[in-house]
Amino acid sequence: MQHVSQNDTAANGGVQWPWYLGLYGNYTIWNYAVGGAVCSNNLTPLYGEPDVSTGQQAWFIQDHIDAYKTSHQKLSLDPSSFVVVQFIGTNDVGIGSFLTTDEAANVSLPDVADCQLNSLKSMHALGARNFILNSLIPLQLTGLYSNSSAPTIYYPEVHDGNAWNKGMYNLVHSLNRMLSDGIDVLNVEWAGDGRIEWFNTYDFFKTMYNNPTQYFNGSIPANVTGHCHQCPDPDDYTQCGIGDCTLAERDSYMWWDELHPSEQTGRNLAAEIYKKIEGKSEY
């Protein structure tokens, strides 16, 4: 995998937030994230993209582990010189998975939590020692998982919006609690030989949502309930983009579309994670 460049675009149509993290902290960033990925395709195989537990970890091994699985295996980086940031979960709990009861019959939410925690344990076994685990964001605030039952480009059918909204609230809070409790256990287990910091992305997004003028500063008033990218006909992707906000207006929006945060939200997130790495974030 390559370093993050400013040309690497995210699902929000803008620059990925890790690029901004590298800018704010003057860090070298190695970004192994893949759009549409889940923690494990064996649990919630949504799109079949390389998952966190196998595919994305394999890229880290390729880049930074010498003589893998031999007696001469060695991490090519100083463990104190880098932080592993893991941010996954949206695709594991949403449509096509738990929310719409499309997960496999033998898969439960604790399995997804264990997958995330086991991925951190695997990275620890490879020699990484500094970690940040990001919680899920308040997905019930997005257009896709709001209490509206109207069709969207991601789900072009009428649905029970109220049930989705309540269900997503429950899923996000349940998984976040499992993850938070799990890293407490791992930190005790490791007894100082490695440390996982919990980044409360949920609360940070709620702060942005409740204090929009502090975080969104485009050419129109801050907007945390609408979104910039428009798809007038949920059955026709070719119409997406008609009626989008202008470039000057983009930084006013918290959300790019019915699901994805805006680039400005990503900038805010990067700035706060930089503070977390520096030990100065309240989240």
Rank of each mutant, 00 (worst) to 15 (best):
P151K: 03
P151G: 08
M178K: 13
V107E: 02
V107H: 06
G161M: 02
I137N: 08
G127V: 01
I153G: 01
P138M: 00
E157Y: 13
M208C: 11
L120K: 06
Q116E: 08
L136R: 04
V107G: 02
T152R: 03
P156Y: 05
S119V: 07
L120C: 05
H173A: 12
S148I: 00
K206Q: 14
E197W: 13
L144R: 08
A150R: 11
D160R: 02
S108T: 15
H159S: 14
I183T: 10
P212Q: 09
V188A: 15
D203W: 01
W198R: 09
R177I: 13
Y169V: 12
A163I: 01
C115N: 00
N176D: 15
Y215L: 14
V107L: 04
N170T: 14
N210V: 07
N210Q: 14
S122V: 02
A104V: 03
N118G: 10
V185G: 07
K121I: 12
L117K: 00
A191W: 03
A128N: 08
S219D: 03
N147H: 11
V172S: 08
N118L: 07
V185W: 05
P138S: 04
L120R: 04
V158R: 11
S108I: 09
W190G: 10
W198Q: 11
V107M: 06
Q116V: 14
D181L: 11
P156C: 05
L141D: 01
W190I: 07
T201Y: 07
A104H: 13
N106Y: 03
K121C: 00
S174Y: 11
S108D: 13
N211G: 07
M123L: 15
N147D: 15
W164I: 02
G167H: 03
A104K: 15
T201P: 03
P212A: 10
G167E: 06
K206S: 06
F216T: 09
R129A: 01
H173Y: 09
L126S: 09
G218V: 10
K121A: 13
E189A: 13
L171E: 04
N170I: 09
H173V: 12
L141N: 08
N200E: 14
V185N: 11
F131C: 01
F98Y: 05
Q140E: 15
L99T: 05
W190H: 13
A113H: 04
A150S: 13
M208S: 07
N130Q: 14
E189W: 03
L117V: 07
V158N: 14
E197I: 15
E189Y: 10
L171M: 06
A163L: 10
G161N: 09
V188R: 13
G127N: 07
V112P: 02
R129L: 03
E197F: 08
Y215A: 12
L109R: 01
N200L: 12
Y154P: 01
L175P: 05
H159V: 11
N211D: 14
Y202R: 07
L186G: 04
Q214W: 06
E157T: 11
G182F: 08
P151D: 05
I183D: 04
F205L: 15
